[in-house]
Design a protein around this nucleic acid. Structure first.
Lengths: 185, 185
DNA sequence: CTGAATCGTTCGTCAAACCGAACAACCAGA
DNA sequence: TCTGGTTGTTCGGTTTGACGAACGATTCAG
């Protein structure tokens, strides 16, 4: 579940796509990126294994983030009504319910949760994989959350972010729900 | 505001960082990635301009998404109280306020907004850069949003996602606020 | 029908990325 | 103190990516 795509063809396709979308010619792009036309031609043909600097120059010239050139395609439209969660992630404790709303494209791990908490004992969360970051926006209620050694109390509309790779907690002081963006790196 | 970082040094640092974090030796990583130790050594030394296939193999061997090897560092802790927005993005129309909560690291395009809307005329939004996706979770109130040709009405706790690269709109039916995750790819 | 612009392709040359081996430094155990 | 096993480094040789020029194909101006 990591990088399933063989990069050569993907890059070739991405280059053509982005260039056509920018509405410039191969020669023009090569000029802007400071490359030889031949190089770019072969790249778009799928032949070739460009160096980082080369591909980087193309990204800059195209005005797109680098990773855009090594990733495939996007998504569509979807609605999930309150309480309709598809994948409900229920903790061992019944006063905590998180609903998975959206997952990022394979290589961009960004999971969006709708989290419902009932007041009661604090829920301790195991550290996630190193580099994780959590973002929380409270919808309603009051929540004490954050790293165990540095909890914060937040209310409706408040936003808090903290590392997810250390022990942290969620404690509802009253019936609450919040939006949780989990950044997995 | 695109790719400010010269990739060579960044990649070198990223490689060391991820390898140490994985707790494996240079030789071992080289073996798993099917590379020569010398190649990897020079890469981590900052000398060298790896080919895509080379860097890709390293990403796979390390078990990290590719883009992770061409990006810098993460964040820490932060709280923004309701109404305290640092960067407030006020539209030409006064009934729409969006507060930027968090930006991803430079190349991880994931912007988190807190959006406040007053009822009134619908706000038409220009299409963003191709591939954008918007995720919205309503905090309170009622909002009609989505692509102009396919709007949806959502309430507290509801979630909706739609492409951001087509004309779309936000219309508050009553005083509302929502969490908006803007995916830029 | 030319001449001069583009467009994108193919070819030969050179620099450099990658390889393999040999290297010093370190550690564990006999 | 010798081994045998690591660690990561530096050194020639070969493969190959990037360059520049020359190419046929278009399109437009004259």
């Amino acid at each position: 579940m990591e990088q399933p795509a063989p990069p050569l063809a993907v890059i070739a396709a991405a280059l053509r796509r982005e260039r056509n979308l920018a509405g410039i010619s191969l020669a023009e792009l090569a000029r802007r990126a400071g490359l030889a036309k031949s190089t770019l031609s072969q790249l778009e043909a799928g032949a070739g294994n460009p160096s980082i600097e080369t591909l980087w120059a193309l990204g800059v010239a195209l005005g797109v983030p680098f990773s855009r050139l090594v990733e495939p395609e996007p998504a569509k439209v979807r609605v999930i009504r309150a309480g309709e969660g598809a994948t409900r992630l229920r903790a061992d404790r019944a006063d905590f319910v998180a609903t998975l709303l959206a997952t990022g494209s394979p290589h961009v791990r960004r999971d969006l949760y709708l989290m419902e908490l009932a007041p009661g004992e604090a829920r301790e969360a195991e550290p996630h994989i190193p580099g994780s970051v959590e973002h929380i926006v409270v919808g309603s209620g009051r929540i004490r959350t954050g790293p165990v050694e540095e909890p914060v109390e937040v209310g409706p509309g408040d936003y808090v972010t903290f590392p997810g790779d250390v022990p942290h907690r969620y404690e509802a002081l009253e019936p609450s729900w919040a939006v949780l963006v989990m950044e997995h790196r």
